[in-house]
Amino acid sequence: MRDLEETLRDAVQDLADDAPHAYDLAGAARVQGRRIRRRRHAAAALAVLAVVAVPFVWSRPEPRTPVVQPAPTPSVTVKASIRPLPDFLVRTPYRLPGDAVVTMVTIPSTVIEDGAQVSGPNTYVALDRDAGRYRQLPFDESLAAMSPDSDRLAMSPDGKRFAAEVARNEIGVLDATGRRLDTLNVDTHDRVGADPVWSPDGSRLLMPTDGGFAVYETSTGEVRQFADLDISSLCSDFCSFSWLPNGHEIAAPREDVSEPQGESIPDRIESVIVYSADTGKRVRSIPMTGVPVGNQAWSPDGSSVLIREEQGIRVVDAITGIPRGKRMAGPDAIYLSDGRILGYGSSFAQVYAPDGTLLEEYRMPRQFTGGMTLTVARS
């Protein structure tokens, strides 16, 4: 197997060669969800590569020739410098500001089909927590979700290696070495973003279905399906499910059906519906204008949540949905254990106060550019 650092470096070079456009945070946020199901949205995935592959544009240095400058006014605020982060190494866990760690790097590729360039198999470089280092997984684009402890993988049947072994609507549960642990027969939901999601402690796997959702218990192997819910018909274009911190409730977005509908018009979010993962019953509705950005979008105490809107990421109250602070730029964000927020992409990392005020800004290592996707978790 090739050295993983060499794999990362070569992928960066190949992807960056064709990416001359300026970095666009809003565009990256809009298309982030639409590339999750690559078999249905190959064109969107290519757009993401063109957007995310470009590094930040740095300010030009002052000319060496002395020039007369006007005296600065007291109202001018000088922005803090962007500090570089150290290089990524496969032999040790890569830690980001706060208590965050990179658990996986997804390296995309492109292939030519019928004369057109489409997304090809991915390369997954995942953290082996027991060994304390990264290694390449023997899977392609069929990887759907990795458990928080990196010990279990949920695989959808569209990958070449796994598709030959299972039926269309089966989800495979494997360990990190590729050994089959279980096969789950579930009528999966095919909306964008409706991928399986592991619970915060990794003991349960949530699987969106056409009729509602199913929950897999790793301790017993039991699969409980909850059907006849309104999730399928009311879920938005980006039907991303997430677990709440308590590990007993899940949330799904609901589109605003009063807004204009159409293929070219992004769905507007009306609310987020919370369901019990134990009974399947609807618990409450939270008025929101965006989709929670993932499991770690919910604050550790469950009082607030990070949602993705058209203009960026925002903190809202987890009960009322009322905004609590400023919008934050970036494709992804998680709550840190101390209540601060980490925003990140393949080119940057930013630490925000709980109200969205920017505190620190960092430049990601050169190995992470070129359209790569990072999976980040609290340590």
Rank of each mutant, 00 (worst) to 15 (best):
R2I: 12
E5C: 08
E5V: 01
L8M: 07
D10R: 08
L15D: 06
A22Q: 10
R34S: 15
R38A: 12
A47Y: 12
V57A: 14
E62M: 14
T65W: 10
V68L: 07
P70H: 09
P74T: 05
S75I: 13
T77S: 07
L85M: 14
P93F: 00
Y94P: 00
R95L: 13
R95T: 02
V102F: 06
T106R: 14
P108D: 11
S109Y: 04
A131N: 04
G132A: 10
Y134E: 09
Y134R: 01
R135V: 04
L137W: 04
S142N: 09
A144K: 05
D151I: 00
D151N: 11
R152S: 01
M155A: 01
R161I: 12
E165C: 04
L181C: 07
D182K: 09
N185S: 13
D187R: 09
V192M: 09
D195M: 12
P200V: 08
P208M: 10
T209P: 03
V215I: 15
E217W: 04
S219I: 02
T220R: 05
V223E: 00
A227C: 02
C235K: 04
P245F: 09
N246V: 01
G247F: 10
A251F: 00
D256Q: 07
D256G: 01
V257T: 11
G262Q: 08
I265T: 02
I269M: 03
A277S: 15
R282L: 08
S285H: 04
M288L: 08
A297E: 01
A297N: 02
S299A: 14
S304A: 15
R308S: 14
E309S: 08
I319P: 00
I322A: 11
P323C: 03
R324L: 13
R324K: 09
R327T: 09
S337Q: 12
G339D: 02
G339T: 00
R340V: 00
F348D: 15
A349L: 01
A349N: 07
T357R: 06
L359K: 03
R363L: 15
M364H: 03
R366L: 14
Q367W: 04
T369A: 15
G370S: 10
G371H: 02
A377N: 10
R378N: 08
